[in-house]
């Protein structure tokens, strides 16, 4: 296992290197300069500004400079927010995004699992239909519509919770709830399908006929085996939520990473694009690694390392 993880770590570095390089060159293909008010700058001004940020150098030179600094741990300063180090910018923004993402993932997974399991155990009954309908609605309603409705009815009309802004736990409820709808729907759907499949397997019949209690059959034999696809999808889903979602952050005015990232792309804020991409990729690759390890723990029949295992 240790060898496997170490090997994967090495691959991780290679993957990261490729992602970083690719993104760097793709990003340089985006037109225009990273400066505000670009439409008002004269050529001489553009020259001076480019000089300041080293953008007059040929792209390969910029690339090596960037990679060199990166190895030293220097991710540069933002072009949009003068002189502000990119690393602090990300550190400041990741907090709210991560808190919201984790809350939504935990809440969503638990509710989703319950809904999915209930639906499968009560297959083709009212409980099944209600939970399926909920799941379908959860993925059919665009998140901004759901968030907007929540904000308007719970925030403005009922005045139960703050409409937006980010000032303490009370402010988390609406955005986390909006985010979790998709998680609930996804987890419930996958769990239901997998449970149905598992419940039809011979070993469940065996377990039942052995006279094991229903709870043990459900827990020990069904749920664990049904978790595989849920785990597969949950990892990346959690990362997407934790690294911030543009729309929810925008609607609830949460100072998170998602909006900043999209903004940096449309404004050509190169250092921020690069740093966020790296951050996101690291999270993602680590989660995939964890998922792969979990495969083996949840279902010992799967040998991740391929070959001998």
């Amino acid at each position: 296992m240790v060898r496997f993880v170490l090997k994967r770590m090495l691959y991780m570095l290679i993957t990261l290197f490729i992602i970083t390089s690719f993104t760097f060159f793709l990003m340089k293909l985006l037109p225009g300069s990273p400066f505000n008010n670009e439409e008002k700058l004269t050529d001489a001004q553009k020259f001076i500004l480019n000089e300041k940020y080293g953008l007059n150098d040929p792209v390969p030179v910029q690339y090596f400079n960037y990679m060199g600094n990166l190895l030293k741990g220097d991710m540069g300063v933002s072009f949009q927010y003068d002189n502000r180090p990119v690393s602090t910018m990300i550190a400041e923004r990741i907090g709210p995004s991560a808190v919201l993402g984790i809350e939504a993932t935990i809440f969503g997974t638990i509710i989703g699992l319950i809904l999915g399991i209930v639906a499968a155990l009560r297959h083709n009954t009212a409980a099944d239909y209600v939970s399926s309908l909920f799941a379908v609605l959860g993925i059919s309603i665009p998140s901004f519509v759901f968030a907007g409705l929540l904000q308007y009815y719970v925030g403005v009309k009922l005045d139960w919770l703050p409409v937006a802004l980010w000032d303490g736990p009370k402010y988390h409820v609406l955005p986390a709830l909006s985010l979790s709808v998709f998680v609930i729907a996804t987890v419930a759907r996958f769990m239901r399908t997998e449970m149905l499949e598992v419940l039809g397997q011979d070993y469940i019949t065996t377990a039942k006929s052995k006279g094991l209690s229903k709870l043990v059959v459900i827990y020990k034999h069904s749920v664990r085996n049904a978790l595989i696809p849920v785990v597969t999808i949950l990892g990346p889903l959690a990362i997407n939520l934790i690294t911030g979602t543009l729309i929810i952050e925008k609607i609830f005015a949460v100072p998170g990473l998602g909006y900043q990232f999209v903004g940096s792309i449309t404004l050509n804020d190169y250092p921020v694009i690069m740093a966020t991409t790296i951050f996101y990729s690291v999270c993602f690759i680590v989660v995939i690694l964890i998922v792969d390890i979990l495969y083996g723990i949840i279902d010992p029949r799967i040998r991740v390392a391929g070959g001998k295992g």
Partner: peptide, 14 residues
């Protein structure tokens, strides 16, 4: 991992 890691918004804009 690489496909997912490269921000697809950049690719789409391109």
């Amino acid at each position: 991992e690489i496909v997912i890691g490269i921000p697809n918004l950049i690719v789409i804009i391109l």
